[in-house]
Simulated assay, not measured.
Amino acid sequence: MRSLISFKPAALASVLVALAGCQSLQSSDNFLGVVTPYRIEIVQGNVVTKEQAQAIKPGMTRAQVRDILGSPLLTDPFHADRWDYVFTIRRQGAEPQRRSIVVLFDGEVLKSIDPGGELPGEREFVASIDTFKTRRNAPALALTEEQVKALPLPVRPAAPEAAASAVGATRTYPPLEPR
């Protein structure tokens, strides 16, 4: 009987440890530090960068705005003069992002654009979603001055007089078909 009483707290403790372990497995991104579950990449809406927003000027037509920003994600039939550009991305290995840009029109003419905060530049956006940052140690694509000077000089072609003196065929070829 005494061993049964001492067994209950040990069993209770082991059950609590096991349940705590199950909770930590659900909240982590990997299983035992080895296996990472696949998470689908979700991209919705239009990417609007700082360069695109700077190209939009009051007085532009709806067609001009659509050419620069693309089609809006939301157009409300009750607010025909408002376009909403919403962008969300969830990518494994990168921070989730959400942006909402509101474009207001006065009839067919652009009245204002509200970017809803600081927009990233095109390069900044690509860097923020690039999950291969550590593997991309690409060499520079331009040569330095020292490297250009170290290159061998190109070989000059033969003088034009030597080429002009060779008249007629210099090689003879066998016939392609037997006679």
Rank of each mutant, 00 (worst) to 15 (best):
R2V: 06
R2W: 08
S3N: 14
S3K: 13
F7E: 08
F7M: 11
F7N: 06
K8C: 11
A11R: 05
L12T: 09
A13Q: 07
S14Y: 05
A18Y: 06
A20C: 05
G21M: 10
C22T: 13
C22K: 04
L25C: 11
S27P: 11
S28R: 05
N30H: 04
L32H: 01
L32A: 15
R39Y: 10
I40P: 14
E41Q: 05
G45W: 04
K50Q: 15
E51Q: 07
E51A: 13
E51F: 08
Q52K: 13
A53E: 12
A53W: 01
A53L: 07
Q54G: 07
A55M: 14
I56D: 00
K57N: 01
T61G: 11
D67S: 12
G70A: 00
P72R: 01
L73T: 14
T75D: 14
F78R: 13
F78A: 13
F78P: 01
A80K: 15
D81T: 03
Y85S: 00
Y85I: 00
V86N: 13
V86Y: 13
I89S: 12
Q92M: 03
Q92Y: 06
G93Q: 03
E95R: 08
Q97G: 11
V102L: 15
F105V: 07
D106C: 13
D106S: 15
G107W: 01
E108N: 07
L110G: 01
L110N: 00
K111Q: 12
D114R: 06
P115R: 05
G117I: 12
G117Y: 05
P120L: 10
G121D: 10
G121H: 09
G121W: 08
G121C: 06
G121S: 14
E122H: 07
R123V: 14
R123I: 02
E124V: 02
V126E: 07
A127H: 08
A127P: 00
I129R: 04
F132K: 15
F132N: 10
T134P: 02
R135P: 02
N137G: 14
A138S: 05
A138M: 12
L141C: 09
A142W: 14
L143W: 09
L143C: 03
T144P: 02
E146M: 11
Q147A: 06
Q147V: 01
V148K: 15
K149R: 15
A150M: 05
L151N: 07
L151E: 15
P154S: 10
V155L: 04
R156T: 03
R156Q: 06
A158M: 12
A159N: 12
E161W: 14
A162M: 07
A163Q: 13
A163D: 10
A164F: 12
A164R: 12
A164M: 11
A164C: 04
S165W: 06
S165G: 08
S165Y: 10
S165K: 15
G168H: 00
T170H: 05
Y173Q: 03
L176A: 13
L176K: 12
L176H: 07
P178Q: 15
